[in-house]
Amino acid sequence: KPRTPFTTAQLLALERKFRQKQYLSIAERAEFSSSLSLTETQVKIWFQNRRAKAKR
């Protein structure tokens, strides 16, 4: 499955949200993903990867 190329605007929004909160609830994820027109899975995986990156 090819990787999702996120737009610059989407990445900025994701990073901004991540700075506020490293873990999203299911409801927050649903709302946030639709506002960015991404799937919930894409947002979930992005947050997982971003948390892993923050640990390094």
Rank of each mutant, 00 (worst) to 15 (best):
L12K: 09
T8M: 12
S33I: 04
L11D: 07
E28N: 05
T39K: 02
L36R: 05
V43I: 10
A52H: 07
V43F: 02
R19Q: 13
I45W: 13
R56V: 14
A9F: 10
P5G: 04
E28D: 04
Y23L: 06
A27P: 08
E31A: 05
L11R: 04
Y23S: 13
W46H: 13
A52G: 09
F47I: 06
R29E: 14
S33N: 05
Q48N: 04
Q10S: 03
S33L: 04
K55A: 13
K53C: 12
P5S: 11
W46I: 00
I26S: 09
L36P: 04
T4Q: 07
E40R: 01
R19V: 11
K1N: 15
K21S: 13
K44P: 04
L14R: 00
K21R: 10
R29T: 15
K55H: 06
Q10C: 02
T8N: 12
A9L: 10
L38M: 11
A27I: 06
Q20I: 04
K17S: 01
P5W: 02
S33F: 00
A30Q: 09
A13F: 13
R19L: 15
R16Y: 07
A27G: 05
A9S: 12
E31R: 02
K55Y: 05
L12M: 15
L38Q: 00
T7M: 02
I26A: 12
P2R: 11
T39P: 08
S35I: 08
E40C: 00
E31N: 13
I45P: 05
P2L: 11
S35C: 08
R29G: 10
S37A: 07
F47D: 01
A13D: 03
T41P: 04
Y23F: 11
K55V: 09
Q10E: 01
E15L: 06
F18R: 03
L24Y: 09
I45A: 10
T7K: 00
T39V: 01
I26F: 10
E31M: 05
F47W: 09
A30P: 06
L11Y: 09
A27M: 05
I26C: 08
T8L: 12
R16K: 13
A27H: 11
R29W: 09
R29F: 15
S33A: 07
S37T: 08
K1M: 15
P5F: 15
L24T: 01
E15A: 01
A27D: 14
V43P: 02
E40T: 04
S35K: 13
R56S: 08
V43T: 02
S35L: 08
Q22G: 07
E28C: 03
L36C: 02
W46S: 01
A13W: 01
L36I: 08
T41R: 06
R19S: 15
A30C: 14
A52T: 12
F18A: 00
Y23R: 09
T8V: 12
T4I: 11
Q42F: 00
R16L: 14
Y23M: 10
E40K: 01
A27L: 10
K53A: 13
S33E: 00
K1R: 06
Q10M: 03
A13L: 07
S33D: 08
T7S: 11
K21E: 11
I26P: 11
L38R: 01
K21W: 02
L38A: 01
F6D: 04
K21N: 15
K1I: 09
Q20V: 08
L24V: 02
S25H: 14
F6A: 01
T41Q: 09
S33Q: 03
K44D: 15
L11G: 03
K44I: 10
S35F: 06
T41K: 10
K17W: 01
T7A: 02
A27K: 06
Q42E: 14
Q20S: 10
F18E: 00
S34F: 11
R51H: 12
Y23Q: 12
L14P: 15
Q10V: 09
I45E: 15
F18N: 06
E40Q: 05
R29M: 15
K17M: 14
A54W: 11
T8Y: 09
R16F: 10
A54R: 05
Y23V: 14
W46P: 03
Q42K: 03
K53N: 15
K55S: 12
N49V: 06
P2N: 15
Y23A: 11
F32C: 14
L38G: 00
S34H: 08
T7E: 03
K53W: 06
E28F: 11
T8F: 12
S37F: 02
W46G: 03
Y23H: 14
L36S: 04
E31Q: 06
N49C: 07
T41N: 10
K21P: 01
R51A: 06
P2I: 14
K21C: 09
K44A: 12
Q48H: 12
R51W: 00
K53V: 10
S37K: 12
F47C: 01
S37E: 11
K55W: 09
A30F: 05
E28W: 02
T41G: 09
S37C: 12
N49G: 08
R16P: 01
S34T: 05
K44L: 11
R29P: 03
R50Q: 14
E15P: 04
A54N: 09
F6R: 01
S34E: 10
P5D: 13
I45R: 06
V43A: 00
Q10G: 06
R29V: 15
K44R: 11
S37Y: 00
A54Y: 13
K17I: 15
R56H: 09
L36N: 04
F18Y: 09
T4W: 05
Q48E: 15
T39M: 02
A13C: 14
T8A: 12
A9R: 08
K17V: 08
Y23T: 14
T39A: 05
L11S: 02
L12V: 11
Q48M: 10
T39I: 06
E15H: 05
F47S: 02
R50T: 06
K53E: 13
